[in-house]
Design a protein around this nucleic acid. Structure first.
Lengths: 310, 310
DNA sequence: CTTGGCGATACCTCAAAAATATCGCCAAAC
DNA sequence: GTTTGGCGATATTTTTGAGGTATCGCCAAG
């Protein structure tokens, strides 16, 4: 049995007349008669009662038509759904990201993506840089935002693009003596109680600080340690000391604190976006477009990477 | 889009291999490749990813396949449902009947029909003989059991068959003086307080009784009147008098009463089954078969009527 | 009795589904 | 390195069957 039989039976039931139903279907009457006859032979039962007053479904016909209409709806929906999925309007995107990405690029990216693709299910997983690459390679994530490019086995199957430069800045209470300065120097920092992030979560930031303060970083030894930037800012605001962290911290709105550049400027690992080179999913594509629109630093690097992948 | 495309796509997804899917479908590989290509062109999106490791659905393919499977299920169900409806295994039967039919043929008929056709929805309507025929003609009933054949406008479009003869019998308490007799005579009845059914519900029975007792039926004038046979039997059991009613009363199980033939024997109108001559519904057909099996008096009369109708 | 409308039938045409043969590609084996 | 084998795509032919035209048979209305 073919979808044609369903369409013809439904049209015949709607018009109650072979000639008019055939006209509506864009065919002549004899083929319609034949197709209905074939259908009835296949079912093994008369589906329509032909009378002078018109053509009416039998009980078997009614049972058939109910199913036929639903089948046709499913077929139409199959075409629509597949098209929407192909255009990336529906589907799922599993995003792994380091917590600091939540400060700067993610809020804008996510809200914009959610507006542009309301029917895409976003699955967000905050995770350390080191866990993202294996998850991408294993197919457990579709896209990841990490600190620095992915490494480890299978990293060559990933495409990655820097989406945000970063460097160390200081944060302190507005009441702090240095708060009036445009920037603070390393020498000044050495004389301060410092607050830094925990090494395990963001080893790159800690390494950057060590580089900044010099090998003899006795100051770091006595620093307070916080697990995320919100805590660093909170401690700095309460006057415990001067906080050090990624420039991304500026995105946290908080009265009573001041952010300062640190001299000399000390770069931190880039925020990097990566995904499987073989993934051509349209949802991923749409997400990359959103990233490009929201991260000015991306530029044409992403297009280059997309063009050169397998 | 045709059902063929759905079947091919589902088979391809199941086997992950063009050649094997084609084999399973009973076609060669090239036609399958072409049909899938056509389908993808119609949808406007690639539905399957061809890799060295096998053929896998894309996101669009998954969306399509989910709908396709449901559509195919509906199509299969359409065939099954239509077949079942055509064989009268499902559907609806609206039966109008006089109350006295509930005494004798209906209990057996209904329980047997319910066992044989568990998925047919039975709609039972107790109604007076005079209301059944119009309801049949108007299409509000599928079949009716009446006292005597249908009359009135449109009755010629009905087929009717007697399914049970009937005559007047008496019922009395086992303590009654006549209870030991094999039968009671009209003369004996004239000397008794009588209990008869109400005229409006079963005028035919009352007419039969008047004929039995003679024109000068003063006895009837003073009779007690009950609206149904159960009341007649109940009153007779309590010794109020002798009840008169259709022989069908015997079917009511009740200790403490005795049923007697009345001499001379007085016929009552036949119980008649009728239905629309143009109704060829298989459910009706099945019901007629059950009637035939349960009512020995029907014999071949029903077959004759079925054969001769339009 | 005739006419007209409707569905079925007969027959033909042609599009397209499927079969056969072959190609191109890539990975694994030698 | 070359070869081989497996797989999907392509080219070409064959065949099926969907659809078109002409016509029939039937019945009800005029």
């Amino acid at each position: 049995m073919e979808a044609r039989h369903l369409r013809y039976a439904v049209a015949l039931a709607e018009h109650g007349h072979f000639g008019r139903a055939a006209g509506e279907l864009g065919i002549a009457q004899p083929p319609l008669s034949k197709q209905i006859a074939d259908l009835e032979r296949e079912i093994g039962a008369r589906l329509f009662e032909r009378t002078r007053q018109g053509v009416f479904p039998t009980a078997a016909g009614e049972a058939f038509l109910a199913r036929a209409r639903r089948a046709l709806e499913e077929i139409a929906a199959a075409e629509v759904d597949a098209g929407r999925a192909a255009r990336g309007e529906t589907g799922r995107l599993r995003l792994g990201f380091v917590a600091s990405a939540l400060l700067d690029p993610l809020p804008g990216v996510l809200s914009r993506f959610g507006r542009e693709r309301p029917d895409v299910r976003l699955e967000l997983h905050e995770m350390a840089t080191s866990r993202s690459s294996p998850a991408l390679i294993a197919g457990e994530l579709d896209v990841a935002i990490t600190l620095g490019p992915p490494r480890g086995a299978g990293a060559e199957h990933l495409v990655s693009v820097p989406i945000g430069r970063d460097h160390v800045i200081a944060v302190m209470s507005t009441a702090h003596p240095y708060a009036g300065q445009p920037s603070v120097s390393v020498d000044q920092l050495r004389r301060q109680p410092l607050i830094v992030s925990a090494g395990e979560d963001e080893p790159a930031v800690v390494a950057g600080l060590r580089g900044l303060l010099g090998r003899d970083s006795s100051a770091l030894g006595g620093a307070s340690v916080a697990r995320d930037v919100h805590t660093i800012i909170g401690l700095a605001a309460s006057g415990v000391g001067v906080g050090l962290g990624p420039s991304r911290m500026r995105a946290v709105p908080r009265p009573g604190v001041r952010f300062c550049e640190v001299t000399p400027g000390t770069p931190l690992p880039d925020l990097v976006l990566s995904f499987a080179a073989r993934d051509h999913s349209p949802v991923l594509r749409a997400f990359l477009d959103t990233i490009r629109g929201n991260c000015p630093e991306v530029g044409s690097a992403l297009d280059d990477r997309l063009r050169s992948r397998t």
